[in-house]
Design a protein around this nucleic acid. Sequence first.
DNA 1: ATTATAGGCTAATTGCAATTAGCCGTCAAG
DNA 2: CTTGACGGCTAATTGCAATTAGCCTATAAT
Lengths: 206, 206
Amino acid sequence: MDTKHRILDEALTLFSEKGYANVFVGDIAERVGIKAPSLYKHYKSKQAIFDAIIEEMSERFLKQASALNISGTDPTTDAGIYKKINEEQLIELGRNLFLYYLHDDYTKRFRKMLTIEQFHDKELAAVYMKQYFDDPLSYQGMLFNLMVEGGILSADNVQVMTLHFYAPIYTLLTVCDRDPSREEECLKLLDAHLRQFDKIYGRTIE
Amino acid sequence: MDTKHRILDEALTLFSEKGYANVFVGDIAERVGIKAPSLYKHYKSKQAIFDAIIEEMSERFLKQASALNISGTDPTTDAGIYKKINEEQLIELGRNLFLYYLHDDYTKRFRKMLTIEQFHDKELAAVYMKQYFDDPLSYQGMLFNLMVEGGILSADNVQVMTLHFYAPIYTLLTVCDRDPSREEECLKLLDAHLRQFDKIYGRTIE
DNA sequence: ATTATAGGCTAATTGCAATTAGCCGTCAAG
DNA sequence: CTTGACGGCTAATTGCAATTAGCCTATAAT
C-alpha cells in the first residue's frame, strides 16, 4: 500500500535529475525494488505517474504558505507583527524563503523537474510561474505593504521594491540548483544582498 | 552545402520548443524539406546535430560581447566612456542587455534549449551558468567599477550592486521565455526597476 | 566523355522501452 | 477452508524512432 507512494517519490527524484523522457519505467521500478511490469498494478502508465506527481505537488503547495513567514502565522490575520519587524527579522525572512526553497526536499525536486519539463506543456509553465514568480511577489508585496504602513520600509513603488528583494533570491536559487557546490558562495551573497536591501529600503525607527 | 546549416537552425528551433528527446529526426528533416535518412549525409547522428549546435553557439558567444554595451566599444580599452555615462544611458544599458537576450533569435532559442537540457549534462549546466550568470555579473561588475571610479555610482559592495542590477533583468527574462504574452508587462517592470536602481545607486554629478 | 562525389530517396533493419498477458503466492473476509 | 483481490514475477508483444543499405541523379573535375 505504501509502494504506490514510493513510486511517486522515486519517480520525482529521477525526473528531476534526468527529465521525463530520459527516465525508463524500469529505472523507477528498480529504485522501488520491484520490476517494471509491477508498476502497472499501481499506475496505468508512465504518464499517469507524472500526472500524479503534479497532482500531489499542487496540493502540497496549498498547505505550505505558512512555512515561509517569520511568525508562522497568517499575515492577513496578524498584520501587526509585520509592522514591528526589525532589520534582523527582515533578513531572516529572506533567508528563510531562500533556505526553504533550497532545502525542502519535495519543492527542490519538483522545481528541477518543472524547469526541465516546463516547455512541454503550457500548464507546467504556468504552474512554475505561479509558484516561483507570481505567488512569491504577491505574497512578499503584501508583507512589504504592511511594513511600509508600519514605517519599517520606505518606497514609492512597492512592486519594484519587492522585485529587488525577490529577484536576487530567485537568481541565486537557480544557481544552486544547477551547481550545488556553489551553495556556500550563494549564501554569502544572499546575506550581503539582504543587508544591502535593508540599508536601502529600511527606515530606522526612533 | 547550405542544407547542413539549415539543419542546425531547424533543429535548434525544435529542441528549444520541445527538448531533445521529444524531437524526432524526421521532424527536423521535414522542416528542412528532406527525408530523415538524408540527414545522415550531413551528420553522423542526432546527437551530433545537438553537439554541433552547442559548438556553434559557443563560438557565437565569443563574438557577441560588443553588442551589449552602449558604445559598441570594448570598455577595457575605452574606460573613459563609462566614467561619463548619465542616467538615461545607464537605463539604456540595462534595457539593451534585456532586449538583446530577449529578442536575439539565436540566443533566445539556445537559452531555452539549455534550460531544458541543462540537467542531462554537467557541461551544459556550466555553459548556462557562465553565459547567464557569471559572465554578465563579471562584465557588469567591471562597468560598475568604472562608474564608481567616475563618481556616477556609489556603493560599498559593487558585487551586490551588480546583483541588484542584473537579477531583476534575469528574472524578468525567464518570465518572458515562459510566457511571451507577458513581455509588455515585463518591459514596464524592467523600466521601473532601472529607474529605481539609478535612484538608489546613482550620484548626481554637479 | 567519364567518373567520382555530394546529396537525395525508399525500403529495410535494429533496438529499445512501454505496455500487456498470464501466472503465482499471500492474506483477509466470509 | 476457500476464494478473491492485491501485488509481485517472467515472458511476450508492440510500436516507434534512429539508423543503415543500397539505389539514383546531377554536377563538377579530370
